[in-house]
Design a protein around this nucleic acid. Sequence first.
DNA 1: ATGGTGGAGGGTCCA
Length: 266
Amino acid sequence: MKIATFNINGIKARIEVLLAWLDESQPDIVGLQEIKSQDEPFPRAAFEEKGWHVETHGQKGFNGVALISKIPPSEVNRGLPGEEKGEPDEQARFIEGVWETDAGPLRVVSLYLPNGNPVGEDRKWGYKLRWMERLHRWSQERLALEEMLVLAGDYNVIPEPRDACHPENWAGDALFQPESRAAFRRLLALGLTDAIRACDGSEGLFTFWDYQAGAWPKNNGIRIDHLLLSPEAADRLLSADIEKHVRGWEKPSDHVPAAVNLRVES
DNA sequence: ATGGTGGAGGGTCCA
């Protein structure tokens, strides 16, 4: 069972790239981020024609997440619970699906964590830190189910210096602040496994290269797209990979897909 | 010069 995450930076601008990648990569479940579309105008027919099932959680203009899968999910939940219990998030950044497998239910989340810049401004930076606390509480509750869980998405967090080509350039950025990195470590401390890192400890594993200043040809990238696995999912982890070559395609996203393979046979 | 580029939408806001 191949589960992938891909920040596509606009579904309307990325239909061709996404269809080509789905055809090549053959994932079973994909979490998309930054669809930048409301649910109604999402071009779902282009995917349904090729046999994909589509679940969206969009909003106008920016943000927005989706789940694309070969088999339809048995359950879908939209939105990360808010500050107060039962209060919905004001931004579309979270969608959860459940799929039935021979090894039991598999929960997959597509999340788009707030960027958080500029640091210090409550509307952006405070929102990011509060969102990470909410994600922590939600993860704690889900982990208590002791099921296979994959928290996949654009975390907008560079976990460690080795996850950036030039870590010194990110010193003042919300993606590399001690507070956001600590919040990411607290998520891992719940018992979640960073699948890409668990499979490859080397430097130079990146998932994002800015469109500007020739970042891609210089390989000036960062690793901010992550797949965090519950112990039950990590026990079944076969491999994890970043599909870096997609950044070199025509009209690419600034992110590339990352994926895990889980053994879900009983 | 201090978002240099790119996406969405039709304002600028966002990253």
